[in-house]
Design a protein around this nucleic acid. Structure first.
Length: 573
RNA sequence: GACUCAGUAGCUCAGCUGGUAGAGCACAUCCCUUUUAAGGAUGGGGUCCUGGGUUCGAACCCCAGCUGAGUCACCA
């Protein structure tokens, strides 16, 4: 990269890098730097009268500097937080040679550089716990300026807030917005808490295929890809349910997986094309057992993170303390619309939809119509954790029929803050029934429902060998994390949310410039001056271009040999 | 996909009715031995998102596009 397309601050940092090397300082040293302390621990535990932390070794990023003649203050940030450093010229430069302080620290180091220090803890006159530096070493030079975020009394100045930049350059977001890390640390804690609980029960964590030739287990549009040597299409999984159930057939009595699923659908603040779901299947259980298990799990996660069950989510307080109310879907619809839909036919349901002003079309079957009514009129009412149970059979093709009501299934969804958080059922293990349900899905598909499920013959074969009665549950880890960290956007709980690719500058290649007779060293200069395309040169007068080029060369001290007027005339011809 | 809003220095943002592009922080130079978002002084830094149009003149007005955010639709 030539200096022509760098900002002034980047050029200065690259020059500093070169000067460091001239001084014999390697800006990217290879050897390990063994630290023996964390900033947060020193801040929390240092007490002057105890004389502790008198030989600390710290490493981290310089986040601020205040140079006051022969003494300076800086802040260093490690993964636990920040602490102030006191750096005195004559202490880090014991002899006559003051280069390390005067040149290296004061001039060649910048905010963002990663350094290591040795020294001792002390308290400044203003009362701030700090580290008095005796030795300082550069561990990694930073070539780009960081956004500088300052904070006083909880008030943040010049915060780095641009969503696009925060998501595209999450590394910068994490460096300068420490509270961002917290959501991700909690996310891992959620997963660890769940895993701990499952392992205590003796359930086995497993991995199943992400590339599937039949995308099953859910109703969604998949991503499609292609395997070259098999020459077949493959789909990125939309769920792992059918594979986990095969493992139950195989004799495992409890399996679970934290799985990345992929759905080729819309993106908004609650949907990312790839997202994480935990699915668990336990043999010899039913959905009633699973409800108890689920609420125990959610409560346990809340307690592990916050030590309490009542949490702020947006403008609402949500209490994750179990037990959660259980409301049948028919009750929910009756309560919020006044209609009793039990035993209603498809055309009767369509009428009800019309009266409720719910959009519907002929491709929608009974299940979809009921789903619409619930989604439109009921879902958003369930703010506190609530199990919605006993879904119509048409919308649950993998679920066992209800033991008492044959038109219903033994299914529940856990609703929180008006959103689905978990979905579970007594798994359908009757292979004949399962085949019929798949065939019904095919009918829906033929009617135009592009989300209806495919028939997975191998899965049916597995069921025919016999699957024990089993209950399974899936829970969206991203959504759970949103609730548990009070983030309203899925992008705030994903390190790298999906974004459109960054726009490349629409510019001609070096080769194209060269073939127009322009020497390599001038190509970047021309681009920096705004000539991204060779053709753009033809629209300016050679004389003006010649003057501008020589002027740019001089102004930016590029030290290039100016081209002749004749040469420039040739470029613009 | 529809609508609304936004895009100006490395970052956060001003910029009036269309008249030579501004501030704070950051950066550079000089001075200065415990400062607290801030030590002092001076200075450099811009494709005003892109492309058209209107105009004597556009960061500003109009049209189209790109990117993002929000609302809705679709979707769990």
């Amino acid at each position: 990269m030539s200096t022509a397309e760098l900002s002034e601050q980047e050029v200065i940092r690259r020059n500093s890098l070169a000067k460091l090397r001239e001084l014999g300082i390697e800006p990217y040293p290879a050897e390990e730097f063994p630290v023996n302390a964390k900033t947060a621990v020193i801040k929390a535990e240092f007490e002057p009268e105890k004389q502790n932390f008198q030989e600390v070794v710290l490493a981290g990023r310089i986040m601020s500097r205040r140079i006051m003649g022969k003494a300076s203050f800086a802040e260093i940030q490690d993964d636990s937080g920040r602490i102030q450093l006191y750096i005195n010229r004559d202490e880090i430069c014991a002899g006559e040679d003051k280069t390390l302080y005067n040149d290296v620290f004061k001039k060649l180091l910048d905010i963002g550089d990663i350094i290591g220090v040795k020294g001792f803890a002390f308290t400044t006159q203003v009362g701030e716990k700090s580290v008095h530096v005796k030795e300082l070493v550069l561990l990694s030079k930073s070539l780009r300026p960081l956004p500088i975020v300052k904070e006083k009394d909880g008030k943040v100045y010049d915060a780095f807030t641009d969503m696009e930049q925060r998501y595209r350059q999450r590394y910068v977001d994490l460096v300068v917005n420490p509270q961002v890390k917290d959501a991700f640390i909690k996310r891992t804690k959620i997963v660890n808490t769940m895993r701990e609980m499952f392992n205590e029960h003796g359930y086995l964590e497993v991995e199943t295929p992400i590339l599937q030739s039949i995308p099953g287990g859910a109703a969604a549009r998949p991503f499609i890809t292609h395997h070259n040597s098999l020459n077949i299409p493959l789909y990125l999984r939309i769920a792992n349910e059918l594979y986990l159930k095969r493992l139950i057939v195989g004799g495992f009595e409890g399996v679970y997986e934290f799985a990345k699923d992929f759905r080729n659908e819309g993106m908004d603040r609650t949907h990312n094309p790839e997202f994480t779901v935990m699915e668990i299947y336990v043999a010899y259980k039913d959905y009633k057992w699973m409800m108890n298990f689920t609420e125990e799990m959610v409560e346990r996660v809340a307690l592990a993170l916050h030590g309490k069950t009542e949490l702020q989510v947006g403008d609402k307080m949500i209490d994750f303390k179990r037990p959660y109310p259980r409301v049948t879907m028919y009750e929910a619809i009756k309560e919020h619309t006044g209609y009793d839909i039990a035993g209603k036919s498809e055309s009767e349901l369509r009428e009800i939809c019309d009266k409720l002003e719910i959009e519907n079309d002929p491709t929608m079957g009974k299940g979809k119509l009921i789903d619409e009514i619930f989604g439109e009129k009921c879902e958003h009412h369930y703010i506190q954790p609530t199990f919605i149970i006993d879904y119509p059979v048409e919308m649950s093709p993998l679920t066992k029929k209800h033991r008492e009501h044959p038109e219903l299934t033994e299914r529940f969804e856990l609703m929180v803050n008006g959103k689905e958080l978990a979905n579970a059922y007594s798994e359908l293990n009757d292979p004949i029934d399962q085949r019929e349900r798949f065939e019904d899905q095919m009918t829906l598909s033929e009617k135009g429902d592009d989300e209806a499920m495919f028939i997975d013959q191998d899965f049916l074969r597995a069921l025919e060998y016999g699957m024990p009665p089993t209950s399974g549950m899936g829970i969206g880890i991203d959504r759970l994390t949103m609730f548990m960290t009070n983030n309203l956007s899925i992008q705030d709980v994903l390190f790298f949310p999906q974004m459109k690719p960054e726009k490349k500058a629409d510019a001609d290649s070096d080769e194209k410039f060269e073939s127009a007779g322009i020497p390599g060293e001038w190509i970047e200069v021309l681009r920096k001056m705004g000539f991204k395309k060779v053709d753009a040169l033809k629209e300016v007068k050679a004389g003006k271009l010649f003057n501008d080029l020589c002027g740019y060369n001089k102004k930016n001290k590029l030290g290039l040999q100016n081209p002749s007027m004749e040469e420039v005339t040739g470029w613009t011809a």
